[in-house]
Write a protein that binds this DNA or RNA. Sequence first.
DNA 1: TAGATTGTTAATCGATTAACAATC
DNA 2: TAGATTGTTAATCGATTAACAATC
Lengths: 207, 207
Amino acid sequence: MANDIPDIVIGRLPIYLRALTHLAAEGESTTTSSYDLGRKLGISSAQIRKDLSHFGEFGKQGTGYNIKYLIEQLRQILHLDREWAIVLVGAGYIGHALSHYQGFQHRGFQILWVFDNDPGKIGRDMNGMRIRNMSELGALVRSEGVKVAILAVPASSAQETTDLLVESGIKSILSYAPINLTVPSDVNVRYTDPVVQLQRMTYYLDS
Amino acid sequence: MANDIPDIVIGRLPIYLRALTHLAAEGESTTTSSYDLGRKLGISSAQIRKDLSHFGEFGKQGTGYNIKYLIEQLRQILHLDREWAIVLVGAGYIGHALSHYQGFQHRGFQILWVFDNDPGKIGRDMNGMRIRNMSELGALVRSEGVKVAILAVPASSAQETTDLLVESGIKSILSYAPINLTVPSDVNVRYTDPVVQLQRMTYYLDS
DNA sequence: TAGATTGTTAATCGATTAACAATC
DNA sequence: TAGATTGTTAATCGATTAACAATC
């Protein structure tokens, strides 16, 4: 988290990247403009230009941005010019869905191993991956230098599992557990809680 | 979205509510302070007090906040003093995981129906719910006045499905499709894309 | 009472937007 | 060339924090 570029800017880059990738797939044009991209995303063109300007000059006056070139640049900025190995912890319903998710491969990630501590699940297959004993996690993660984890365990064991991940060298955690986790300052956690998202929207509904 | 209270404040209230609910479940104390809560969440005590002050005075000098009372107040503010019916659209892996998610019931939501347009899935059972034909969605949602939907369909049909939801009177959409959706200004969309979250974190990893 | 903590004000900090010279 | 669009500066807007009187 130590950098002079605001994290909120970093947070928008994957959104830009995603939209640009769609544009590239459509193949209707080789270029786009900050105005065009902003309209698609509901973001002002000034903000897009400002965000990108933190990292360099990627466009051309009069014509805008070359889509493929900007994609390539964003990939480099976000360190997506390699594939990141992920450990998935928790082989419940959410873990199961994630193990089948097609979106990882083409966007820079691959689930390497799946762990659970339920003896009834350990050794079983989940979408071609053998569910491993959580007790093996530390040694494996350390030996391969894996840095990214997805946490899909119940809230009751989420902090404990997080401590194990941190101790094993994990630096980025995407958590599906509906609880706030405590981690050292050099570890990044992002949360996905559908209920929190829903509750944020019901405020705007007349009850 | 039309209100004078910043959406970013609204976005923190469910987080406060979640933490308070944990505190209440632990039952170690009947009160908490903005300092205590802030430490747990990594938020400043001043921000918590400021956020709450938009809605009233819920604390007491010297003692802090009564946990149960504050929970009750936050529930009212967020319109969670009732149960919201949800339609789940898409009975793939993500829809399947969501249909088993235990966290909805106790936090104000209930999945009422599940829809899909795959003839191979329609009529089948998913965790006790019959998967319905998407063609029935409009009439059912309109007749029951459902306002909240979870979108768990492929990106390729997400916009089309969203249009159907909007047309049927849905006002809040939680989307799992990795694509930006276009909706009228009176409809709220929130996104959940694990890859976007992961990509935001790899920036901070040395590649 | 003394200590703790609120709610609120004002100051600070940071992010977004408007505007435009530069230039493709 | 004329039109379009960038990158950047300065202005504006909004959010966070510090500080403290009020008071439980």
